[in-house]
Design a protein around this nucleic acid. Structure first.
Lengths: 234, 234
DNA sequence: AAATTGCAAATCGTAGACAATATGGCATCG
DNA sequence: CGATGCCATATTGTCTACGATTTGCAATTT
């Protein structure tokens, strides 16, 4: 828009500050750092160090910590500090169950209101994943997989559902970041995708929930049973 | 425990501060104020006024605001302040759908692991609600109803699920607090309760989800269709 | 070697200050 | 009389500085 902005990041930073408080910017930044994996789970997040690194004072950093704590991404111990949340295998299973329930619910709600355009879009994604799958192209498969789930969850038009779902996905990233990348078996994954689309196409809420729930549960099983987890705790 | 504490509130406050930060205490306090209904939805929460009222400085209050915002209880507008979250009818429907999905998921998960003792407890609650229902005793029915839902959600042992579920319940309180108390029809409610317990007793995950989901959806319908909502917005 | 003491560092909360922004009333003008 | 612009006030957003409390570690003592 404006031609006088010197750097993109500078204009972005200013624009963001117009519509958002500094604490929220800091929160997004810390979240990026956490999910980026530079700090491992259990790592300590030093208030002052983070404030200095981000060029802000302690206030906004502490506010961001509270928001991240509410979202389950950090652990706060009084008089000790803030740490990247540790996700035990048991916790991961619990979060996966919630995610499965939310995704199944999304499928169920979507079955009642899905448009033909949405069905076409989902079928296209499944077809693309078929191609990526047969080529063993994980680099192509992952973004398609995310797009598929996003299309369903956001397709419901229920932002509360979408936000809650993605909050669970974020929390699960903390577990995966510990070294447990889910092993193969993504061939089966697309079979499950097709079952979901079939149920949606049939506009069968009942079957849609079951297919969506089962799909995430299968993903959970793939992770939970993926070896003994070198970094497992508890 | 200790006989030398002068006041309960004083010892409690100290104990709480040992295991929790001041910001979290403030958060709980503000949440209590919000859900208590003294501040109506859309009401402004003045930083300094709240800080003075609670006897703390602005810092902890601002931190509490961030946590409450993450939980969907307040709205934050830059340079304007913090307001009690407004829940439109559309929002309430969305939250109800998520709550229904979570409760159904709880029923489904519980069906796989429920103990005979838990079944007995649930049946007892249903029986008590039958009595309260036939007596038209709402004062007795409400706590039993909450206990029933709690027993199921917490009975899964999944704290993430329970926390997420109760977060939705809290957000819905913002809607009910606007004057829309759900009308009668709580006779049907216990029929649905019985259906849930039957499915759990049969250890049928499929039927348990359906019964739990349908029960919350029925509650949603009772509210959504309860007249035209004198205080409705948007 | 084990327990105690002492100290450095970090966190937690407060207080005060300041700029930026929004609010509400008032004067001015059409 | 109504609309517009301006100004005083209040509030937010952020920073800095300070004191109090706690923790963790090291040194000392028994």
């Amino acid at each position: 828009m404006s031609a006088q902005t010197q750097t993109i990041s500078a204009s972005d930073a200013l624009d963001v500050l117009r519509s958002s408080s500094l604490a929220q910017v800091v929160q997004a930044e810390i979240e990026k750092i956490i999910l980026g994996g530079t700090y491992g789970p259990g790592a300590k997040l030093n208030e002052k160090a983070l404030a200095d690194r981000l060029g802000v004072s302690r206030g906004p950093v502490r506010e961001a910590f509270q928001a991240l704590h509410a979202r389950g991404l950090v652990e706060m111990i009084p008089n000790r500090g803030v740490f990247v949340q540790q996700i035990s295998r048991h916790d991961a299973v619990a979060i996966y169950d919630v995610r499965a329930g939310l995704f199944g619910t999304a499928c169920r709600l979507l079955a009642d209101r899905i448009t033909t355009a949405q069905i076409t879009g989902l079928k296209a994604l499944v077809a693309q994943m078929d191609v990526a799958g047969s080529n063993r192209d994980l680099e192509a498969y992952f973004p398609l997989n995310i797009a598929f789930h996003s299309a369903i969850v956001r397709g419901t038009g229920n932002t509360v559902l979408a936000d809650t779902y993605f909050a669970m996905v974020s929390r699960l990233h903390l577990f995966r970041a510990r070294g447990l990348v889910h092993g193969g078996g993504f061939e089966n994954s697309n079979i499950e995708h097709r079952a979901i689309v079939d149920a949606l196409d049939a506009r069968d809420p009942h079957a849609a929930f079951e297919a969506g729930f089962a799909h995430v549960q299968a993903g959970k099983a793939r992770i939970v049973t993926s070896g003994d987890g070198p970094l497992a705790n508890a």
